[in-house]
Design a protein around this nucleic acid. Structure first.
Lengths: 226, 226
DNA sequence: GCCTGATGTCGCCGCCCGGCGACATCGATT
DNA sequence: AATCGATGTCGCCGGGCGGCGACATCAGGC
């Protein structure tokens, strides 16, 4: 075989940049903060793009362009990394959903919930990471997912509470239960559309399909909240 | 060389019968039909119990107590096995959901949809296999899942059509879209409950929790269909 | 200069996966 | 009895995974 070459390893062992076209080719030279950010961003991007199925230490390290050992050192493994993702979810709502009323005056609880439903629908449609997390939540019950789920649930509840203001639901309606069903419907519609382009016989691809879905959703909200 | 034991293999390699109460403990001695059934039942049980995450050739063969090679021979691999599961789904509805009206007269479309919603909710809650399939559908978009999804969708649509009878939805309501949202809501509520015991802040464990959810669902159906 | 700790890298380990070739065993037909 | 196809079993292969020990490289204090 080889008689002991002077340099013990090839200087370009696996062309790390050429095979990772997605991220910026920044030379992170011993900058722990930047490396941590790169790992976190890679994890979020990987989860958003590939889903939780192939989400693992090796895949994240590949995507981040760093060694997987750093994930263990900086985040204590996948669990810690998932916690870090969860910590970001608290800021999701304020990044994604406007807090003002868009120039409308929301006079009734029905006005409010109609608007919130459509906002939530749109926000979910626009956020692949959130969709993957929701799909993950209904598919597994591991420690990782429980933490993510809790973070998401809190963020959503806080947002709802903030938007609600002083409006109270109509008497005699169990708003918590009804809203849970509405949220469930929105989440499942978006997930189904994202996965298969349709839900229970309703096509969900073209924008006119979504117009139908939104109209039906509005009608449902108005039917229950007036 | 084997010291040739009289019985060809260990009679209880992994307690296949105790964990698979559906099949008979018969020694399948060169009975292809029985082996095929054992494989199919093992696949369904495995999917129902463990979910699609660990669903694979090796796991099914272990659960069925046979060699994985037989899965390739008899079903052409996992895809064929999944197709066989899908073929069973066509009979799901008639096994699970009564076709009669339970002694009620369904006078209006609202009566019908209220009853169907509650029936569908209950049927899903009672069927872990179906739940896993639904979760699978919103988590992946592989060939396997598409076939399962199509089978399930057709079975559900056929059941709805059969139950609908001559009742027509109210004018001015896009029943397809509204019903898709209702089905989405039911599916997601059940999945969330099954995975985490709650959905959007609504606990879904005790039966009184489910009473709340059912009341809210009824209210929503009545709100939109009268 | 030199040492030390922080940062980044390499390569090994054991495990399980899907896929498949090769073989063993049985039953029926001849 | 001999044969042959159907049925069942065994073990290998390449590969990816999580986990981690050992090492290389650099920055900064002394």
């Amino acid at each position: 075989m080889k008689p002991e070459s002077p340099m013990l390893n090839d200087p370009m062992p696996l062309t790390p940049i050429a095979s990772a076209p997605q991220a910026e080719p920044e030379k992170r030279v011993r900058d722990r903060g930047a490396t941590e950010k790169a790992i976190l961003n890679a994890a979020k991007a990987l989860l958003a793009e590939e889903g939780f199925q192939n989400f693992g230490i090796n895949a994240v390290a590949r995507k981040a362009g760093c060694d997987k050992q750093l994930i263990y050192r900086y985040y204590g493994g996948l669990n810690g990394l998932v916690d870090a993702i969860g910590a970001d979810l608290g800021t999701w709502v304020k990044d994604r959903i406007p807090e003002d009323t868009g120039g409308m005056f929301l006079l009734t609880y029905g006005d409010l919930m109609e608007r919130l439903s459509l906002l939530f629908l749109q926000a979910l449609r626009d956020d692949p990471l959130m969709r993957r997390i929701v799909a993950w939540e209904v598919s597994e019950n591991t420690e990782q997912v429980r933490r993510l789920s809790e973070a998401r649930s809190k963020a959503l509840a806080a947002w709802l509470e903030r938007m609600r203001g002083s409006l109270a639901p109509p008497k005699g309606v169990d708003a918590v239960a009804v809203n849970a069903i509405l949220i469930a419907a929105i989440q499942h519609i978006v997930l189904s559309a994202s996965a298969g382009g349709q839900c229970a016989g309703l096509a969900l691809k073209a924008s006119k399909d979504w117009d139908k879905a939104e109209a039906a959703l509005k009608r449902i909200v108005r039917g229950v909240y007036g």
